Every structure is written in C-alpha cells, then in structure tokens.
Simulated assay, not measured.
Amino acid sequence: MRLLWKFLLTISFSCLFCGHVSAGKVKCQDPYYGYCYGIPLKCPPGCPKLCEVDCKTCKPYCDCDRPGAVCQDPRFVGGDGVMFYFHGKKDKEFCLLSDPDLHINGHFIGKMSSKGRDFTWVQSIGILFGPNQLYIGASKVSDWHDSTDYMHIQLNGHDVTVPLGSGETWLSSETGVSITRVGPANAIVLEVAGLFKVRARVVPITQEESNIHGYDITTDDCFAHLELGFKFSSLSSSVNGVLGQTYAPGYRTRVKMGAPMPIMGGNDKFSSSHLFSTDCAVSRFGSKPDGLELVDDLPIVICGGNSGVHGMVCKR
C-alpha cells in the first residue's frame, strides 16, 4: 500500500512542470522528461484550443477535467474526482472553500434563462489567507482579443501587474505569493507555498458556445470569466464549501451519479455577503484547526478518457 501511494504521488507531482498552454498544441517544458521534452502535442477534442501536458505520461489533457477544477457554467470536479454543477445565482457570492487557514469565495455573473435558473459563470474569486486578501477577476469585455490581457489581480487592495509573456513572474516576499504567466496573456499560475496553488485563465463565451447552449450572448458583453484549477496543501478535516467539502475525509457525493448534469444544491448555506466575507453558514476560516491534515491534495491519476469526467475511472 505504501508503494502504491508513493507511485500515485509521483504521478501527481510530475504535473508541477506541465507544459505551458498554446493555441491547439502544448509542449512539455521539463527537460527531466527527455522523451517528451519540447514535443508538440495536439490538444484533446474536449479542449481543442487550450490544454496542458503531463510530462510523465507525455499526454495532453484538459485542465477542466482534473480534481479541483471550476470551469464553464460552473462545472466543478471535486477532490473525490466526481464532476458536478453548482449554478448559484448571478451577481451573488458563494463560498467555494473554507478552512481555518484559507477561505475562497467566488462572484458569479450570468443571464436569465428560460429553463428556470440563471446561466452563471465565476467572474472573480476572493482568497483570504492569514491577514491577506487576494483578488483574481476577469474584466468586462465586449470585443475579445486573444493578445489583450483581461485578468485583474489585486493583493491587499493594491493592483498587481505581471509583465506580459509566458514565463514572466511576480513575487511578494511579505505574503509568499508568487505569480507566473503560463501564456502570452490571460493565464497564470498563482501559488502560496504550503497552502494552495491555482491555475487561472480568463476566457470568453464564444458565439459558437452561445448558439449551442442557448446563452443568447450579445455583442455588448462576451461574459469573460475564469477557468480555475486548484491544488491544496494541508487542509483540515473540517474543510467545507462548494468545492472544499469534497476534500473532507469520508465525504460522499450527494449528486445523482449518471445524470447528464448532476447538480449540487445548497445556495443558502454557501451564500456569502461579499467577495471577502467569511459569513457563509459553512465558514471555517479563523476557527481552531482540528489537527487532522490531508496529504497535499489528492493524487492525480490519468487514465481512461481525457474529457467528460464523472468520477474516477481507474481500477487499481
């Protein structure tokens, strides 16, 4: 069992040096994996324009299909590997994760639909850790241009400017925040060592998506929003939130497995009064830690399909 766990962790950590995102193709950037390093690989059908590569397996994958993902209309992949949707409400904030040392809220934007619920997307997130407040958001955009950066970042109320260009970095020694661009614009990896890492990407709703899903997006607003991939370290056993609860020991999903769109309810208990509020009913931030920690998130395993994740599909 110990050897199996070590093997799974090795798979997980191999993606710390995954290749940077490019339009339609991706390359492994870690020279340790010589058999894969620098080889252009075509993105999977589930994400034909934006993808990443696992250098160990030398296979491209969709970041939105990994545990910790928050993408699209919000489509979550929990720490347990189960995919679900949480629609919330437009122009409202909801607690995505709450733990004694870390709290993350998301601001939802959207449009009314004829199906009895709002179409919603996560436009920004507010992250609280220690005395610090970190904001990552997408600017309102009418005409989208790939070369223009629409990501807005603030740390403790001050704007953060990361130079444009893949590989450019920004560091804050006082707070431990590091930010690295993983594309020319609109894509970053942000990390606070020992606490969390998040890959954030600003994307628009395309006309094609609007036509397929009936979003009725007009030319005045393309509803630019965030696609997010979280990795957490040392979470307590009391962790909660829309996404956070799925990392708690013994958690069992409440969504209907096998449903075309498994929905996670709970708007009331996850609702927050504003982006940096910790007043949601499931808040754990600032509470006394329970002493039980998880081991550096869950191991990431690539097997089966690379898209349409509904749960762990591997057999061991």
Rank of each mutant, 00 (worst) to 15 (best):
M1F: 14
L8R: 09
T10M: 03
T10S: 13
T10D: 08
F13S: 12
H20D: 10
H20E: 09
A23Q: 12
G24E: 11
V26T: 11
P31T: 09
Y32W: 05
Y33F: 12
G34T: 04
G34S: 07
P44R: 00
P44E: 00
G46L: 01
C47D: 02
C51N: 00
E52T: 07
D54E: 05
K56R: 09
P67F: 03
G68M: 02
Q72T: 12
R75P: 03
V82L: 10
V82N: 07
M83S: 07
F86Y: 05
H87M: 10
K89I: 01
L96I: 01
P100W: 00
K111D: 08
S114L: 14
S114K: 11
G116P: 01
R117A: 10
W121Y: 04
S124W: 07
I125E: 07
G126E: 07
G126H: 07
P131H: 02
Q133R: 15
L134V: 15
I136C: 02
G137F: 09
S139Y: 09
S139N: 15
K140R: 15
K140P: 10
D146S: 15
D146K: 12
S147E: 14
D149F: 06
M151T: 06
H152M: 15
L155F: 02
H158N: 12
V160W: 03
V162N: 05
L164E: 12
S172V: 06
V177L: 15
I179P: 08
V182S: 05
V182H: 07
G183E: 08
N186D: 13
N186P: 09
N186L: 04
V189K: 00
V192M: 13
L195Y: 01
F196W: 13
V198L: 04
R199V: 02
R199G: 04
R199Q: 01
Q207N: 14
E209T: 09
S210A: 14
S210N: 11
N211H: 14
H213A: 04
G214E: 07
T219W: 12
T219H: 13
D221W: 04
D221C: 09
L228T: 03
G229V: 00
F230C: 05
K231F: 06
S233E: 15
L235F: 01
S236N: 13
S237F: 05
S238T: 11
S238F: 08
V239N: 00
G241D: 09
A248P: 02
K256M: 14
M261S: 14
M264A: 10
D268P: 03
D268L: 12
S272W: 01
L275R: 04
F276I: 05
A281R: 10
S283M: 08
F285N: 13
S287W: 05
S287A: 15
K288P: 01
L294Y: 08
D296I: 02
G304K: 00
G308S: 01
G311C: 00
M312Y: 01
